[in-house]
Design a protein around this nucleic acid. Structure first.
Lengths: 211, 211
DNA sequence: AAATGTGAAGCAATTCACAGCA
DNA sequence: TGCTGTGAATTGCTTCACATTT
């Protein structure tokens, strides 16, 4: 399942995820075969780019016809490793952390937040959205039971590095970091930073254009 | 303030935002002058790239010396249009929406959520984090008073297009969309999509590598 | 001496355009 | 005919390397 192909760029992986969404949308129209042009409509990426992306992983299409929707979907899921459920730890049971824990969208896509971690004594020992809150220093210990492989960081910037270290110790192999500072982790751990303020800063630029 | 330069790519804008964070970090070390190499340390981008990005907007540095921190910061803020506060409407007063409304990180960077919109009668008329909740169809009317220019969408996918349309009618000029489907807007409106599930799908790929 | 700003080179990503297959 | 898969062309982005400036 795990492709050993030389290197897939991050951009390609993100596009694959978009293609999946597009397929879901096309599926709701009742179609069973989809062309690169159809997908272009839904994703905004050019048909040529879509074909090249897909052909990198194999020949999934039928010339003159298109791609069989169900088959393509399962191929992409295979590439992205979405055929199994994924167990996730979340550190920082504040507003954002709680919101993500209760977010249907993640669960529906197969991501289950199985343990919360926070140092606030008012939160430790309680449950949020039916998920237990543990102290952060118990992460390694608790994950022997919880067996998660992914982590989400929603603590304030000052605590994010400490939390990332605990996640690495706990054996997590990839981390989604919402804190506004990048964290340092060993080579073999994959981190993705999502800085919400940065998204708005990006947009603010456009307010200064024309008019 | 608004540069009319031919075209800045989105990547450059996002990096500028990272440079700003780096400058904040350097500032805490008490330095007043910073080199492209210093910034490289904090951002992970190469010094050459940083110099090229900055030189695109002007000659901000002093050869042999570096960049004056305060001055560079204010230049970048000027480019990104961050010298003034920004007023933001948020539609979808659910978990994620409430969390963002209460999020210190946004306020500290000058983004103020001044009005919430939701169609749930249990929420309309109440306040969340001291911010009033209005019905979505009142957005245009309310924004005559609220005078926001930016919008955040945290409603479910099915409602996101409708909400985007209302935001356009209300005169908002850029939109941060957390719904997992892209929305259609007129040419002159800038949308940025942040699909949280997509971030985890991206990371899941790396779980399938090496072992 | 040290670091900027920038042509030119090098590399990566995307599109073009079409041969080949259903 | 219609659409895939892919070499070749193109476009765009990043790095190199150095003349220039303080």
């Amino acid at each position: 399942m795990a492709k050993k192909e030389n290197k897939v760029t991050e951009q390609v992986l993100l596009r694959l995820s978009s293609y999946l969404s597009a397929l879901d949308q096309v599926q709701q129209e009742g179609k069973h075969v989809v062309s690169s042009m159809d997908m272009s409509k839904f994703t905004g990426y050019s048909a040529a780019l879509i074909r090249r992306d897909l052909s990198y992983f194999g020949e999934f299409g039928v010339p003159g016809k298109g791609y069989y929707l169900a088959s393509l979907k399962s191929q992409i899921c295979g590439i992205l490793n979405l055929n199994s459920q994924h167990r996730v730890l979340l550190a920082g049971a504040g507003n954002l952390g709680s919101a993500l824990t209760g977010y249907e969208g993640l669960r529906k896509k197969g991501f289950h937040i199985v343990g919360l971690f926070d140092n606030d004594p008012l939160k430790v020992g309680r449950q949020i959205w039916n998920t237990e809150v543990y102290p952060i220093n118990e992460m390694e210990e608790q994950n022997k039971e919880l067996k998660a492989e992914m982590g989400i960081i929603t603590v304030p910037a000052a605590a994010s590095q400490e939390v990332a270290d605990r996640m690495v110790d706990a054996g997590l192999r990839c981390i989604l970091n919402f804190a506004p500072t990048a964290v340092q982790v060993p080579e073999h751990i994959k981190v993705r930073n999502v800085d919400l303020a940065k998204q708005l800063e990006f947009l603010a630029y456009f307010l200064s254009l024309k008019e």
